[in-house]
Design a binder for these strands. Structure first.
Length: 492
RNA sequence: GGUCGGUUGGCCGAGUGGCUAGGCAGCGGUCUGCAAAACCGCGUACGGCGGUUCGAAUCCGCCACCGACCUCCA
């Protein structure tokens, strides 16, 4: 574990050297999706960000236990007493069991995350499967005196907690200011203060998802699930807690309060937050009407998109920005990413054609060091990608005989390029839709291109161009080179 | 209103007190029957105004603008 990985810790607001509590083990907890709707572009950012962290930590030799939850209960539409559970609401509207909703959208989430080449976490616990654990934490908090009961619901007493431990250490908020700035919502009469939050809520008669508890038949609050599940699988204190910046307050703040109240410890030592995605400069949001699901992205079926964008284009695009910056989606920017990715992937293929030579003219060790340095600097994937493009230049030069490698160095170089671009960044060559008879297409194309070459040989350019243009119409691009013609399927 | 962050060349997007990423687009060239593709080369940008400094886009102050969170959101 000889590395100098530094990560920006939201708790301290600066970059810190990463030191695990119990090396070589690393505990990583990331807030996963609330499965009440189709996965959208926003879901891809944290998934890809923490996939990169997961992959890199693993590469460095750590034994990473990566826990990413699925929220299938407790996430309410709003903070009022009568706020409806997101899953339950969808279930009511669609006349399905809440678990059918949760299962369906979990499956959809997995489908699209797989397409983005996001590795599955080590453990993917569901909130509804951990009601007992959540109730246990609620009890501990009540026993310690940091929560109160009201009409069968249990609320966290933020004011009391703040006196003993200070509430707001993660988000930098001060309770007095919260008092004056928090908006008053209807139906908060049960809470002592507007910033108190529910640990357990009594179910209304029509509420579908409900479990028995010492307090009432009800359901858990939103924040308690992460505390219960991270504690169960990673312990009272673990290494890294991640999630989107939008969760920083109140979700993560509440998690910290719950853990400190129940266990006396801040749950995680490093808090990592990815920034948001904007579309044409504006934040993507349900209410803003610029909400794009991943399916719409992959099919191009959305008014803001002028074509379909592949999963790898989106992955590459996201990785081209640093995870703590906002990243702005536009057709122009995606076009640039698509071209750039293609260039990189082509270079990786061409790399195999390099012939070993008597001497090496390229400083591989330096190249490798620079790649590691980029990642060690708070996962600076855009800088790493810039280095990889330097690598592609070297590849082109080597293919043209302007750079050379000994057999051993060539192996090292090839390994390094694959390691960073594929194993760590998780990029891969995308194969076009399954062709049931690839060898037939190969044969047909070989024949056609031979005919075209013959036509060219006798200067029958009319026939040659007819073949070329006709193929283009069909979505096949012919690329002439010194070694003859090649072809590639281009989906428009 | 409070808290936090941002403002970089046509676009996206890194970054550092002086050595001035990278991608895309653009331009020029090589190649080609013509194209396309590919390859090579080129562009000196850091919101405004002050200050610190031998030197700042990079540090400090003020101003402007944009955004995030404070309500559901990844």
């Amino acid at each position: 574990m000889d590395n100098n990985l530094t990560l920006y810790n939201t708790l301290s607001r600066k970059k810190e050297e990463f030191k695990p509590i119990n090396p070589p083990h690393v505990g990583l907890y990331v807030c996963g999706p609330t499965v009440y709707g189709d996965p959208h572009l926003g879901h891809s950012r944290p998934a890809i960000t923490f996939d990169l962290l997961f992959r890199y930590l693993t590469h460095l030799g750590y034994k990473v236990r990566y826990v990413r939850n699925i929220t299938d209960v407790g996430h309410l539409e709003n903070d009022a007493d009568d706020g409806e559970d997101k899953i339950a609401q969808k279930a009511r509207v669609e006349q399905l069991e809440p678990m059918e909703i949760a299962q369906y959208y979990s499956n959809r989430y997995h489908l699209f995350m797989d397409a983005l080449n996001v590795k599955r976490p080590s453990i993917e616990p569901r909130a509804s499967g951990h009601i007992i654990e959540q109730l246990q934490i609620v009890k501990e908090i009540l026993d310690k005196g940091y929560a109160y009961q009201k009409n069968g619901s249990v609320y966290f007493d933020v004011e009391k907690y703040d006196k003993d431990h200070r509430y707001g250490t993660l988000s930098g908020r001060v309770l007095d200011e919260l008092l004056s700035t928090t908006r008053e919502l209807e139906g908060q009469s049960e809470k002592h203060n507007s910033f108190d939050f529910a640990l357990w809520k009594k179910a209304t008669p029509t509420h579908i998802m409900r479990w028995p508890s010492p307090y009432s038949e009800g359901f858990p609050g939103w924040h308690i699930e992460c505390t219960a599940m991270s504690t169960k699988y990673l312990g009272d204190q673990f290494d890294i807690h991640g999630g989107g910046m939008d969760l920083l307050f109140p979700h993560h703040e509440c998690e910290i309060a719950q853990s400190v109240a129940a266990k006396g410890k801040t749950p995680a030592r490093y808090w990592i937050h990815n920034n948001m995605i904007t579309i044409n400069g504006q934040k993507m949001g349900k209410s803003l009407g610029n909400f794009i699901t991943l399916e719409e992205f992959f099919t191009g079926n959305h008014k803001l998109l002028n074509k379909a964008w592949s999963p790898m284009t989106i992955r590459f695009f996201i990785l081209q920005a640093h995870y703590r910056s906002t990243v702005d989606f536009s057709n122009e920017a995606l076009q640039a990413a698509e071209k750039g990715l293609e260039r990189l992937m082509n270079a990786l293929e061409q790399m195999e054609k390099i012939k070993p030579a008597g001497q090496t003219t390229f400083d591989i060790q330096n190249f490798k060091n620079k790649c590691y340095a980029a990642l060690n600097d708070d996962l600076n994937s855009p800088v790493l990608i810039a280095h990889l493009f330097e690598g592609t230049k070297v590849i082109k030069a080597a293919v043209a005989g302007k750079e050379s490698f000994t057999k051993k160095d060539l192996e090292t170089f090839i390994h390094t390029m694959h390691l960073f671009s594929e194993d760590i960044l998780g990029l891969k060559v995308e194969t076009e839709g399954a062709n049931p008879h690839p060898q037939i297409l190969e044969g047909v194309m070989k024949l056609l291109l031979e005919v075209r070459q013959q036509a060219k040989n006798v200067k029958d350019f009319e026939t040659a161009d007819r073949i070329r243009d006709g193929l283009k119409q069909l979505g096949i691009e012919v690329r002439d080179s010194k070694d003859g013609a090649e072809w590639v399927v281009k989906t428009p």
